[in-house]
Design a protein around this nucleic acid. Structure first.
Lengths: 361, 361
DNA sequence: TTGTAAGCGTTATCAA
DNA sequence: TTGATAACGCTTACAA
């Protein structure tokens, strides 16, 4: 029996069909195929057009974005740099941006800094090398040059949540001042008068600075009609629960009778506060009020439920991508700022008295 | 005064330097520059070499990955398709994979399906078009053809967490059977004897099937020496809390005196159980034991703390990327399976009696 | 309306 | 050892 007569198809990785293959199959030139694809306005003879169409279908041809990028300098790629994919906020924004990009026929290239801001330049370099057409940056911008670099290459940049100080670019973010006021007013109305704003180390991160400043203003303004209101701030480091415990104890002492509460600047910090309360044996709401930035799917289930300030993350992502698309279409305006409002979700962590303690009318 | 004599540098987006620029600058040919870059083994005259080196530095030249991809068909890109970026498990795996890829000089292109499994083909197509060299897939694989497609193009594929039924590819995952046993034994030891396995709709998703099957086996085996042990399973849909409430009530009735507990198949389901308990007014641990797959940063703070089975997510991602790299280097072995063990983190949700109820010795 | 040919930035194959 | 030169797959003047 002749052993090698019929070789079972050796699973040769059939290479992708090229435009030349299509041209040959349809009996036309490459240019014609290209025109069929890119310049539908050019009238092609119906006969030719249909031959090309058939050939394309037959070979399951789709143009190579790489070759296209090389030729026309446009890659249909958007670079997204995120300080930390672990942050639910970033992921949510990513989702929004991704949707918008895909709808516009762009693909996202993700670069995660893993909270190592020194790698920002590297990320932008790498992405730029792949000819991404624009950047969405949710990073510290510590390395001032990095993003500016991108802009210098003539690529549009949109900043999300975090402003880069010396950078002229579109900026999409939560209305931090408004959001802080939302939280502050809610606490005051709920009867908390000894307030503390708790943030990760400010370190020039714009959103942290804005929130802290807004908190100070809120206190200053509110004290006019309410002198018993008092505010303080604290920067919480990772790995230092004791310091936080201490700060909370001090807060409660300062309160001396009045109700103490904390506004935490993001979900990570919120969790630290919760951990601290567990150590201290305090009850949420009763012993300490808490409203935290960023609503998460677990917020309702911590203790009596965490009161949060939800950010319109999906919308932020969409808008960031939208801005970029507009710039790519040539929009030439000075940098814009788009600020979206937060939404307060009131839950048990800002209810000072247990329901049973409220007197019936 | 001559107005236009000195035009302030018009911020012309200086185009990236090309290999031709470098060649000209160094007074050599493009080929020489290319060799300098790619074939360090070829001896170049020290003089030439240094001239090239200087020119490269002067122009801040770096090769265009696009052009390289076009020429050599390799893009230094890995395609990562995720069923749902919102899932913390997926993100954690992503991080691990990303690290490994970057170390190996690859960049990740992320495609998120947003839980729409019909888009899997689309994703793989798009990524393949960008000449990604391999795929890491954490998807349903419902669309059987999709991944197979990729393989047919000759690109290596690694599956994470979810097997695609008719797909021959490397597979990296938690040791589901072992993990279920871990959880089951823990519950039994803690005194829970009426067990229920709670999963999202199984729908042929391999990890769900495996975990459920493992649960059944565990019960079957354990009943030999412990006939009072009892097990059941339930598939929980989104948006149907009532059904879940009902199932839990039924579970507790069945228990009739023995302690009831639930093993939930992932963090989402765990949260549903927690929500249900809140509605029912039950206490975690005491009224219902709970151990959930996937440890999260919030797990310790739900009620008395959630007992969880932690997956080595980072390691999973790293290994997936590692497998891919090996395949890219030409490793030609039959598909491998890599199973990693889970770790049980015991917390309050599997402590049946409140500490105060434990009698002093 | 269609085809020819040049070129995008690389790498690889030849000669020199 | 180095330098022309021809691809890679595509788009786009320009010519027919």
């Amino acid at each position: 029996m002749p052993s090698a007569s019929i070789k079972p198809s050796p699973a040769r990785p059939a290479p992708r069909a090229t435009i030349a293959d299509v041209a040959r199959e349809a009996g036309v030139s490459k240019a014609t195929v290209s025109r069929f694809l890119n310049h539908r306005e050019t009238l092609l003879t119906p006969d030719i057009a249909s031959r090309v169409e058939v050939a394309i279908a037959a070979l399951a041809y789709s143009p190579s974005p790489m070759a296209q990028a090389l030729k026309r300098g446009r890659s249909r790629l958007i670079g997204l740099v995120v300080a930390d994919v672990t942050n639910p906020f970033s992921v949510a924004v990513l989702r929004g941006a991704e949707k918008a990009c895909q709808q516009a026929g762009y693909l996202l290239m993700l670069f995660n800094l893993g909270n190592d801001s020194r790698r920002e330049s590297e990320a932008i370099q790498a992405l730029a090398a792949y000819q991404v057409e624009g950047f969405i940056l949710n990073t510290l911008g510590r390395d001032a040059g990095a993003a500016a670099d991108a802009a210098r290459h003539g690529k549009p940049v949109v900043l999300v949540d975090r402003r880069h100080h010396d950078m002229q670019a579109d900026f999409v973010s939560l209305d931090n001042a408004g959001a802080v006021r939302l939280g502050g007013r809610h606490l005051v109305q709920a009867g908390y008068l000894e307030l503390m704003f708790l943030s990760e180390p400010i370190k020039n991160v714009s959103s942290r600075m804005e929130r802290e400043a807004a908190f100070r203003s809120f206190i200053a303004e509110s004290r006019d009609g309410m002198p018993e209101l008092h505010g303080s701030t604290f920067e919480s480091m990772e790995d230092n629960g004791e310091e936080l415990d201490q700060a909370l104890r001090a807060l409660r002492e300062r309160a001396s009778g009045r109700l103490p509460a904390v506004i935490s600047s993001n979900a990570v910090v919120t969790l630290r506060v919760v951990a601290s309360l567990a150590r201290l044996g305090w009850r949420l709401g009763t012993d300490l009020g808490l409203v935290g930035f960023d609503d998460t799917e677990w917020s309702p289930f911590i203790g009596p439920g965490l009161t949060t300030i939800a950010q319109p993350t999906d919308e932020l992502g969409r808008l960031a991508a939208g801005c970029l698309m507009e710039r790519l279409k040539g929009l030439d305006l000075p940098p814009r700022q788009i600020l979206l409002s937060g939404r307060l979700l009131a839950r048990g962590s800002t209810v000072a008295a247990a329901p049973s303690m409220i007197l019936p009318t």
